[in-house]
């Protein structure tokens, strides 16, 4: 199963290496990882999407991450009410004739064309990973030249529903 784990870490040299090295050594697969400065100076936030077999392995991965001296906090937010986004840039082969057709496809996704050249254009989309996957599939017939994705980043919502009102929905199939 895929889990979303957020880490608050001290912004010290080597901390990303500590986290990824640990996951590799303990045989956890990283689907994506995104890192950036957090609200407090000297602190960074990482969002990991990891593949784990079962609850026991999930418990291991969070405990091992917690053991790192530079890791301040580990949260598995998969089952929480969260907002989660990824950004993707997609370069699509396109002549000027096709431009408006492509525009029609990306519009419902609230994606933007952010670069245009003679024979290609670049689309920017933000959203949940499944939404990005869907757009990529729709653009594929035109010829995708390049994709760059940031990996998921996520926040817990301000209001966390009580357990009974939480409709479990899966972000990550």
């Amino acid at each position: 199963m895929k889990r979303i784990i957020t880490l608050t870490v001290q912004d010290r040299s080597g901390v990303l290496n500590r986290v990824t090295g640990l996951l590799q050594r303990r045989q956890f697969n990283i689907s994506s990882i995104s890192v950036g400065p957090a609200e407090k100076e000297g602190v960074s936030k990482m969002t990991l999407v990891v593949e784990v077999e079962d609850d026991q392995r999930l418990e291991q991965v969070t405990k091992q991450l917690n053991k790192q001296i530079d890791v301040l906090k580990v949260s598995d937010i998969t089952d929480k009410a969260i907002v989660a986004r990824e950004l993707a840039l997609i370069k699509v082969a396109s002549s000027s004739q096709l431009r408006s057709e492509i525009n029609g496809i990306i519009d419902p996704f609230r994606a933007l064309i952010i670069d245009v050249s003679k024979d290609s254009l670049a689309v920017q989309i933000t959203g949940r990973p499944d939404k990005i996957d869907a757009l990529i599939e729709l653009l594929r017939p035109y010829g995708i030249k390049e994709i760059a994705r940031t990996g998921l980043t996520a926040l817990q919502r301000g209001h966390q529903p009580q357990v009974n009102e939480l409709a479990t929905f899966s972000l990550l199939k």
Binding site: Q56, E59, Q60, K63, Q64, N66, K67
Partner: peptide, 11 residues
């Protein structure tokens, strides 16, 4: 004293 050892190998 190391929480990561608990449940690692034996439930």
């Amino acid at each position: 004293i190391d929480p990561a050892e608990i449940g690692k190998n034996v439930p």
